[in-house]
Design a protein around this nucleic acid. Structure first.
Length: 1155
RNA sequence: GGUCGUGUAGCUCAGUUGGUUAGAGCGCGUCGCUGAUAACGACGAGGUCCCAAGUUCGAAUCUUGGCACGACCA
């Protein structure tokens, strides 16, 4: 932690503990209500609307939630700093099966019967309280991550106001005919009398053998001809309604001589079936499936056919058509197995049922075919199938098959091995697909509007729009809304017990106002008995079910609520209005905060929250002329999945918790492996562990800066740790450097006006401040870079591209650290505290740090806050002033300060420095060894004059005495001219390869001379002369062998490698300085201590080196007095290469100036 | 089986309307710097840009078809 020392700023440790620091920042935010202040500041500004997708509260938060919460925090923070008002209302998803399951586990019960036996009332009460079980963990994570969201005002899906909003929307649908009853085919456990969820079904698959039957469906209009139909569930044959073929498949009519009968089935399968029948099947003709559609047939059983066989209905097109027992087309039919003709019993198959629904849709309402279902919920045939009445359907397979055989309708019978689901609780009970009455929202009627709405949404990544989400919308089916469960929003529909007519209720008050109402006393009693009961429960089962009233449809009859609750996805999808209780209350809030500017969740929400919101909103608001597309959200970042990193032994598969090289068990090699996050494998660390070890900023920065958010993100503490030095630590080091020297020099910025913002303008009043234009080039350069960076970041963030924004910011901090500060160190060490150049350096660095803080604040809110407070703390702000970077305005780029030419030139300079180092490296000439000279050969002389003014810088960086520039250094380099493909390509077209060859053969130097003299050059290709300008040619230099040279894209750098004795002595002097500095450190000298230095050596070279470089040595090491003694003195023995040397240091005094 | 996505260095990933020398970080190796120092820098090795065909003067990039992996759906 910073300790107070003399100077304007608190000392910044260069061994910072981020997690500890973050804790104190959290306290500061809390104590001063910074989040609230950040909103109050913008109270009259334009809104930026954010919707929080409600997490399910009754489960522990895991690392994936850190990512969503980090992204959800980033953009609201950014927009707030930009001046928008962005309120962030939290929300919790509280209903649904997962909650019931959790409570059942606790109670040790399973089935619905168990729940009924336990009592719905206490069960619901347990559900309600169970929801909040992990709330503390959620709130802790939210806060620790720095996710600013209003937890106190959170919306909760079980709250009465929320439920009533949902009711209102459902009433609207009901009244508009968009909410209807139909059938849903579900996996049904007949013996237990309950449906199973997808997850439960998935657990129970087993490989079993079932009969596979090929049945003849005699075609009515074709004599002695049958469609050959295949099924593995003979028990569904009595319920047959259609036979389906694929329009695009070819069908053959074959002749079976043995039976003297014609059969129609897929042409591709003739051979296969002939083999199975062990007989010849002669193909008489073929046709496409399309030609078969519409043909009528006689079903194998006539339980329904005998009465309804001739029934027809009126199509929407005006024609009439038989209701059933005809061939239809379905594209799910394939020739992979069976016959290419599929038996359809819509009651017992989901796709079959969809086929029925689409058939029904062709007819006028009420005219289409009804569902045939002669099987009871107990899985036994009803009296509609008298021959098999009371038989369990699976058991009836045999008898049915026998009957078919007797009636000569069975063509082939075999056994078929496949995966089939059984009940996971009673594993002898096979499940069957079975229709249940269910409520649907007619989303298909608004499909086109949903698609249009989708088109207006800005999806990130873009392919979601027309890919995953668009496709999902395109194949939209009506939303099966109801659930036969307990803990959920009750479906607000009451039925007349006498007429069966229904009406929807839009609010609790509306219900209470119904005539002859009774039943509210059930709730009143419960509440009286237990005053702690949450009032919201009164709109839930079982209390709401007790409420009945007089039927408006028939006098004397009563209205009872239907028993179902609704899908909890509907709850969350209703949040855009239900979070405010709209329209019963919160109208103002809703109008102001709809639609959302921004939402974000992970990819798994495509069919979840993204869809439920869009569907509900489209059905509810699309007809309102005031609601414009898109709604309910405009920008949506779809996050990738989060993966973990395992450490697995190649040999024995033993798992390790962290990166180790050798297996603990067998000593084998341990490899990193990207895999799914798994609680069981424990292949990830808890978020808290990350927070405690590396800090929330580290985690956030890792998420934001390492990949675009929609790719899958690997959550590994190793990777998170590695991301720290790149940015956080580098920024901290620059900051700590600044504070260190500002304090030494007593740099005092307190005269600045408006220190709360520390903007470039406000700094102008500072003491010793000079406008940027008057400062040195390095200062102008970094300020230019700062503004360039700001421009890019704002541009990218406005496009929701946090990744490139981070990359850009990181590159700037790198420039600041590794070029600006590095090149400016001398200036900070300058003796004269009032030196203009020195003050310029401080003001420049201060401006850069302040701006970087503000730029980075939304990404890494903790470290920026800490730096900011110390930077601004220097301005003599009193204790009552609240300084927070999060109350600042986001920087705007000042384009007038962007100097593109300077930027290019500085890059060139950096490249040359880099090339110089590279050449030194190749020649093994360490930087401490001075060299006499260096020649720079430029591709392009444009910036030569500029570079020449920076000789001093390069000389120092590369330790050379002279630098010369040339564009003509034939000895060192070869000129290669290459075509500018981008320009010449379109011009010469197919000649390009020849042109390229001609370039290769041409005399590059001559061509360049011609270009520089006349501005043009001519190239002869295939008898054509091609006129070239300078733009058409790119010059590349290639360093020749035998020189200490390095080549880059813009230049070649050649070093003079001869070492004169004098140069060698210069090197010795530098070696000596290094030794002295080391020794000073060893002796724990203050960096400002002046010394008396004693050097004793036998080497004449070294003695001469000291003599020649006395000035340099003493000033570098703050030596007040240099004693050269040949007598044996005290001190330590050191070595420079082979040379022995004895050093001694005494402190001579203290200087308050820079080193 | 369908839809979508992904495939680039040992690992994790960039690669901006197609332009001939494909980049970063980490890791590895070599070295440098030495009062920002438990920091920092330079250099190096490492690539059939999944495969094939096509379009084009020119393809990591566009088209088609495969293959592999992943997600969702069935």
């Amino acid at each position: 932690m910073p300790e107070k020392e003399q100077g304007s700023f608190q000392a910044a440790s260069n061994n910072v503990n981020f997690p500890e620091q973050e804790q104190s920042i959290l306290e500061f935010w809390k104590k001063n209500d910074i989040y609230k202040r950040s909103l109050e500041q913008r109270s009259d500004q334009q809104r930026y609307v954010f919707f929080e997708g409600p997490p399910t509260a009754n489960g522990k938060p895991h690392p994936g939630h850190c990512l969503t919460r980090a992204i959800k925090d980033l953009f609201p923070r950014y927009k707030t700093m930009q001046g928008f008002l962005c309120e962030r209302k939290a929300g919790w998803d509280t209903h649904g099966l997962p909650v019931e399951v959790e409570v059942c586990k606790e109670l040790g019960i399973h089935s619905k019967e168990d729940i009924e036996a336990y009592g719905v009332e206490p069960f619901i009460q347990k559900c309600q309280s169970s929801v909040w079980q992990y709330m503390q963990q959620w709130e802790q994570l939210t806060e620790r991550l720095g996710f600013w969201v209003d937890l106190n005002k959170a919306y909760v899906t079980y709250h009465q106001s929320y439920v009533e909003s949902v009711w209102w929307s459902l009433k609207s649908f009901f009244d508009r005919g968009l909410l209807y009853q139909g059938h849903k085919i579900i996996w049904w456990w007949a013996q237990g009398g309950t449906a199973l969820s997808a997850g439960e079904v998935g657990q129970g698959y087993r490989t079993v053998k079932d009969p596979s039957v090929y049945v003849k469906f005699p075609l009515l209009d074709r004599e002695n001809t049958s469609l050959l139909v295949w099924t593995t569930t003979p028990w569904t044959l009595p319920s047959n309604q259609f036979a389906a073929v694929n329009e695009d498949i070819q069908y053959a009519t074959v002749y079976d001589a043995e039976q003297d009968h014609y059969l129609v089935f897929a042409a591709d399968l003739v051979e296969k079936i002939a083999t199975k029948m062990k007989r010849e099947l002669e193909v008489k003709s073929t046709c496409s499936g399309k030609e078969l559609v519409g043909l009528r047939y006689q079903p194998p059983f006539d339980y329904f056919y005998k009465t309804d066989g001739e029934k027809t209905g009126k199509l929407k097109s005006g024609e009439t058509e038989p209701l059933a027992w005809r061939i239809t087309s379905a594209d799910f039919v394939t020739t992979d197995s069976g016959t290419g003709a599929v038996h359809e019993a819509p009651a017992f198959g989901e796709v079959d049922y969809e086929l029925l629904v689409s058939e029904q849709a062709r007819f006028e309402p009420g005219q289409g075919p009804d569902l045939i279902c002669p099987v009871g919920p107990n899985g036994k045939f009803t009296n509609e199938v008298p021959d098999f009445e009371g038989q369990w359907v699976k058991d009836a397979d045999k008898a049915l098959t026998k009957k078919l055989k007797e009636e000569n309708k069975l063509y082939l019978l075999e056994q078929y091995e496949h995966e089939y689901p059984f009940c996971w609780r009673a594993d002898e009970d096979p499940l069957i697909q079975y229709p249940r009455r269910s409520w649907f929202v007619k989303t298909t009627e608004y499909k086109d509007k949903m698609l249009a709405n989708n088109q207006e949404i800005n999806w990130l990544p873009e392919h979601i729009k027309d890919g995953r989400f668009g496709n999902f919308l395109g194949s939209n089916v009506d939303w099966a809304l109801s659930r036969e469960r307990y803990w959920g929003t009750p479906l607000p529909i009451w039925v007349c017990q006498s007429t069966g007519q229904m009406e929807a209720v839009g609010s609790y008050d509306e219900l209470l106002a119904k005539p002859g109402l009774t039943g509210t006393e059930v709730w009143d009693k419960a509440k009286a008995a237990n005053p702690d009961l949450v009032d919201d429960l009164k709109v839930h089962k079982p209390y709401i079910d007790a409420i009945t009233y007089d039927s408006p449809f028939e006098s004397g009859a009563r209205m009872n609520r239907v028993s179902e609750v609704i899908d909890c996805w509907y709850d969350s999808g209703a949040m855009p209005f239900a979070q405010w209780g709209y329209p019963h209350q919160g109208e103002e809030d809703f109008k102001q905060q709809f639609p959302a500017d921004f939402i974000s969740e992970a990819l798994d929400q495509t069919r979840g929250w993204f869809y439920s919101q869009l569907a509900i909103s489209t059905l509810l608001f699309s007809d309102d002329p005031e609601v414009k597309l898109p709604h309910p959200f405009e920008n949506c970042i779809v996050l990738g999945l989060m993966l973990a990193e395992g450490h697995v032994c190649v040999k024995c598969q033993h798992r390790h918790m962290s990166t180790v090289k050798k297996c603990e068990k067998c000593g084998g090699k341990v490899q990193r492996k990207t895999e799914k996050m798994s609680k069981r494998l424990r292949n990830y660390s808890a978020p808290n562990e990350i927070f405690d070890t590396f800090g929330a900023d580290a985690l956030r920065w890792y998420f934001f800066a390492n990949q675009p958010p929609w790719t899958s993100i690997i959550y590994s503490s190793r990777a998170i740790k590695e991301s720290i030095p790149q940015f956080l630590l580098r920024l901290w080091n620059v900051y700590s450097f600044f504070v260190q020297y500002a304090n030494i020099d007593g740099f005092d910025p307190s005269s600045v006006s408006n220190p709360q913002q520390l903007s470039a303008e406000s700094l102008g009043s500072g003491k010793g401040y000079r406008p940027v234009e008057q400062r040195s080039e390095l200062d102008r350069w970094i300020i230019s870079e700062l503004n360039r960076t700001t421009k890019t970041i704002v541009e990218r963030m406005d496009n929701y591209d946090n990744y490139v924004a981070c990359t850009t910011l990181s590159a700037f901090v790198d420039s600041l650290s590794n070029w600006y500060v590095r090149r400016s160190r001398d200036r900070f060490w300058a003796e004269d505290k009032e030196d203009t150049d020195k003050l310029d350096a401080y003001w420049t660095l201060l401006e850069c740090l302040a701006a970087t803080c503000k730029l980075a604040a939304p990404f890494v809110p903790f470290v920026t806050e800490s730096i900011w407070q110390n930077l601004t703390g220097a301005f003599g702000a009193d204790a009552n002033t609240i300084n927070s970077v999060h109350l600042c305005d986001y920087p705007h780029p000042d384009e007038s300060k962007i100097d593109e030419a300077l930027s290019r030139q500085m890059n060139l300079l950096r490249e040359i420095a880099s090339l110089g180092l590279s050449a030194r490296m190749n020649e093994k000439l360490k930087v401490r060894q001075p060299l006499s000279g260096m020649t720079v050969v430029l591709n392009d002389p444009t910036d030569q004059a500029w570079l020449e003014t920076h000789d001093a810088l390069l000389k120092k960086e590369l330790n050379v005495q002279e630098i010369s520039y040339t564009t003509d250094a034939g000895d060192f380099v070869t000129y290669q001219v290459v075509p500018n493909f981008k320009l010449l390509g379109p011009r010469v077209g197919k000649l390009m390869p020849k042109v390229k060859a001609a370039f290769g053969a041409a005399d590059g130097k001559a061509m360049l001379e011609s270009l520089s003299l006349s501005g043009t050059a001519t190239l002869e290709v295939e008898g054509e002369s091609i006129e070239l300008t300078a733009d058409d040619v790119e010059v590349r230099l290639k360093a020749n062998e035998g020189w200490a040279a390095s080549q880059g894209t813009e230049a070649v750098v050649v070093l003079a490698t001869e070492l004169t004795p004098e140069l060698i002595r210069g090197g010795l002097a530098r070696d000596l300085v290094r030794l002295i500095q080391d020794y000073r450190k060893e002796r724990d000298l203050e960096r400002t201590d002046r010394i008396v230095l004693t050097v004793q050596t036998d080497s004449d070279d070294l003695k001469q080196a000291i003599q020649e470089n006395k000035e340099y040595i003493t000033s570098e090491t703050l030596t007040a007095q240099l004693l050269d003694t040949s007598a044996d003195g005290g001190g330590v023995e050191k070595e420079i290469g082979e040379l022995k040397i004895q050093l001694d240091i005494e402190v001579a005094g203290h200087t308050s100036g820079g080193a």
